[in-house]
Design a protein around this nucleic acid. Sequence first.
DNA 1: ATGGCTGCTTTGAGCAGA
Length: 258
Amino acid sequence: MRIASWNVNSIRARLEHLTGWLGRVSPDVLCIQETKVEDSRFPEEVLADAGYRAQFFGQKSYNGVAIAARMGLALEDVKRNLDGDDADAPRRLMACTVEGVRVINVYVPNGQAVGTPAFAYKLAWLSRLRLELAAHCKPEDPLLLCGDFNVAPEPIDVHNPQKWEGQVLFHPDERAALRDVIAWGLCDGFRRFHPEPGHYTWWDYRLSGFRRNQGLRIDHALMTPSLAERATDVWIDKEPRKLDRPSDHAPIVVDFTL
DNA sequence: ATGGCTGCTTTGAGCAGA
């Protein structure tokens, strides 16, 4: 079983990259963030031609999440956004159950800059995510919480931690909020398999960040122990980041036995 | 020191991203 997560930075701008990647990597499920498209314009047919059926939860211009599953694989108990979100809330979360695994796909707010209302919203959102887990899930059950968290957990996850310390994406308060989510009963799937430095999931379009591998590891695949013990690898696919006009994020892929 | 790129928007300069 292969479940992946990718912030595509506009699904319409990335359709060819997306379908090409689905064909090459062939995940059973793909959690997508930043679709940036309202539901009536979601490219269902293109995904269907690629062999995938998607559940989607988007809005115009910003945010938006989707979960695509190989045709014939059922996505059950779909939930959209956090408890307490109203209809106007930014669309940032979709959860479903597939093959007995609860999959939660998140696009955590970016936070803009430390000290802004957006930063406070980001911290509150992470706090509500922890409450969501406590209210609906059990740490004993197989669960994957994946997506774009917009937080680098440790200095090893930042190409230049001295420069980034205290900045948005690597501020102590965000890191504590992410640790609090993990403390519900999760582990960092990627680090279980790849403890060494130099692995990132996002590289700035500016500064030739990708060419110099100056990035941040801000996309994560967090899992409960009962799923982690079935995992055979968690890896980052840098290939699509090398294409012309790429997303600034790379996909993260979780392989596990059923 | 600053901004450096990209996608979106009732098309064009401004916002947001990270």
